[in-house]
């Protein structure tokens, strides 16, 4: 039987997004479905996992397997899915608050563990779903939330620098205003064996209307992807938060569990005996 060529539309569900009109996440959804269509895997061979937040609603809007999990635990969930079903293509979708604050610990260990999955982290530098509080990536002097009227006074997290230091092997940044370029990054991330992180600058036009200006601020990186850690770090610092492209592609193989894991529980318990 001839294989049916799926289109991006086939990867979208019939559920209508409830994001605010103008939200960047619409384009991220389009980029994910376009990347999946180009990848061409059947719907039942793909899983999209998320935590909590506006962007974490994405599994409901796709027609592949989905799991809308607990706040900050999307990467832990997705690691379990991938290890239990290595045949699946696993994507993780979420926001900066979900992934870097509540899920910060899981983020670090997902980077170093290097399980073969693709993490699309939509960064709008705000908690949108809870109506506009500062997130881990918010600038220290952002004063528009009544919770932090004088700014947070705290340095924002640099997700890609953190990912690089923690051992992620595919590091890229995209922009929701360029959904075609973003689809390419996600496509490459899926093809990369190991943990891929794609930070997507995705404006929240409701709580951060000034982010509409990102459209004129984003630019393609002047560099090709490197496999040199020091070079990648230098580029991240030099080009700042508004350059897009693949920054680092590392050589380390994807996580592969060693051993059969059949040690009797009694033997394990002995290790913890007081």
């Amino acid at each position: 039987m001839e294989a049916v060529q799926l289109t991006a539309k086939d990867y979208k569900s019939a559920v209508k997004p409830i994001w605010c009109p103008g939200c960047g996440d619409y384009s991220v959804l389009a980029a994910i479905t376009n990347a999946l269509a180009e990848h061409g895997r059947p719907l039942h061979d793909v899983a999209v996992i998320s935590g909590i937040g506006c962007s974490s609603r994405i599994p409901a809007y796709t027609s592949v397997y989905g799991f809308h999990g607990v706040h900050g635990r999307s990467l832990a969930l997705a690691s379990g899915v991938k290890l239990a079903r290595p045949d699946l293509t696993v994507l993780v979708a979420g926001g900066d608050g979900d992934g870097l604050s509540i899920g910060g610990n899981h983020f670090l260990h997902a980077c170093r563990r290097n399980v073969d999955m693709t993490y699309v982290i939509m960064d709008n530098q705000v908690y949108g779903m809870t109506k506009g509080q500062a997130s881990p990536t918010t600038d220290a002097d952002w004063t528009q939330s009544k919770l932090t009227p004088e700014g947070t006074g705290v340095n924002p997290v640099q997700p890609l620098t953190l990912a690089l230091a923690a051992g992620a092997q595919f590091i890229a940044r995209g922009f929701s205003g360029n959904p075609r370029g973003l689809a390419k990054l996600i496509y490459e991330g899926i093809n990369h064996p190991g943990f891929s992180i794609i930070q997507v600058m995705s404006p929240c036009i409701t709580y951060r209307p000034e982010q509409r200006d990102w459209k004129s601020m984003m630019k393609d990186s002047a560099y090709e992807a490197t496999d040199n850690l020091a070079e990648a770090n230098r580029r991240l610092l030099e080009e700042g938060d508004f350059s897009t492209g693949v920054i680092y592609k590392g050589p380390k193989p994807a996580f592969n569990p060693i051993g059969s894991g059949n040690t009797p529980i009694a033997e394990i318990e002995k290790e913890f005996a007081l």
């Binding site: 103008g22 376009n34 180009e38 075609r180």
Partner: peptide
């Protein structure tokens, strides 16, 4: 053509209205 192989002069096709220009009270 793959989505990123189109040669538009802008990131999106010329007749795709910019999503960020919409508003719930438009």
């Amino acid at each position: 053509l793959k989505p990123w192989e189109f040669q538009w002069v802008d990131p999106e096709g010329p007749e795709s209205g910019a999503i960020e220009n919409s508003h719930y009270k438009m």
